[in-house]
């Protein structure tokens, strides 16, 4: 049932909360329990926020595309933006170290990596950033 779902959003922070609700609905439909589904939605939301900021430079004309597919035992999210950035190289700091410890920003990737069971940054066939997030299904 959860195959080939595609959500395209403009790069605008105001839409992020709606994405979280969308992901929670998808997760619940896939059978993830209510407590874990918030973790999934926050992980996806952190990735989307970074795609908006680092991939698309906050330009509302540029879209972030979220592809969702369920497979036996796993739910897969592919999150594409229009950039070609890498989190460790392009974010300019390591959260939790030095002055970054008291920064009010820059913890999204760290949180997403710890919440998601699998999170990988790569490129899509067009050479743009693609984040693959996989959540196990029981």
């Amino acid at each position: 049932m959860l195959k080939g779902i595609v959500l395209k959003i403009p790069s605008d922070d105001i839409i992020v909360e709606a994405v979280q609700i969308f992901v929670e609905k998808i997760g619940l439909t896939a059978g993830i329990n209510e407590e874990d589904v918030t973790g999934l939605s926050i992980a996806v939301m952190e990735v989307v926020k970074n795609s908006i900021e680092h991939g698309n430079g906050g330009d509302p004309k540029k879209q972030v595309t979220i592809h969702v597919d369920a497979y036996p035992g796993r739910l897969q999210f592919l999150i594409d933006d229009c950039g070609s950035w890498q989190p460790d190289a392009d974010m300019g700091h390591k959260p939790g170290e030095g002055e970054a410890l008291v920064s009010s920003r820059g913890r999204g990737v760290l949180i997403a990596r710890n919440l998601a069971r699998w999170l990988d940054y790569g490129l899509n066939p067009e050479g743009k950033t693609r984040v693959t997030l996989i959540w196990p299904l029981s």
């Binding site: 918030t38 952190e46 920064s103 009010s104 920003r105 820059g106 913890r107 999204g108 949180i111």
Partner: peptide
Amino acid sequence: VAWMDSSGLGVLVSGHT
């Protein structure tokens, strides 16, 4: 508080600072 994301943490850090 059930959940907090990086933005929520950021507000706490700002408040603390």
